[in-house]
């Protein structure tokens, strides 16, 4: 009976991600909590996703750091400059 409404690890991994984007219904939140109390691997998964979220926001303090800077071609620069002058 209990097994009937209990989540599998596979479902939990999806629901953990979803809980980061949306407030889940109480019944589901309880189901997740219950599962995490008994499942160390899913608990670790959850903590790692939270850590990744924090790490990404930390990178955000300087966006240029995250994505390598590509030079705007000189030709385009000149073209844009000209267009700016003409406006």
């Amino acid at each position: 009976m209990i097994n009937h409404w209990m989540f599998k690890c596979k479902d939990i991994s999806h629901l953990i991600s979803r809980s980061m984007d949306q407030k889940l219904p109480l019944r589901i939140r309880i189901g997740i909590k219950f599962h995490l109390m008994m499942c160390n691997l899913c608990l670790r998964y959850k903590k790692q996703l939270e850590l990744i979220h924090k790490a990404i926001s930390k990178l955000d303090t300087d966006k240029e750091e995250i994505f390598p800077v590509t030079q705007l071609p000189d030709q385009t620069k000149e073209k844009i400059k000209k267009n700016l002058e003409n406006h």
Binding site: K63, E64, F67, P68, V69, T70, Q71, L72, K77, I80, K81, L84, E85
Partner: peptide
């Protein structure tokens, strides 16, 4: 001055 924007921010905006 707008004429300096391309040189100052061009590469950054382009990469973004």
């Amino acid at each position: 001055h707008p004429s300096t924007w391309v040189d100052t921010y061009g590469d950054y905006l382009y990469s973004f």
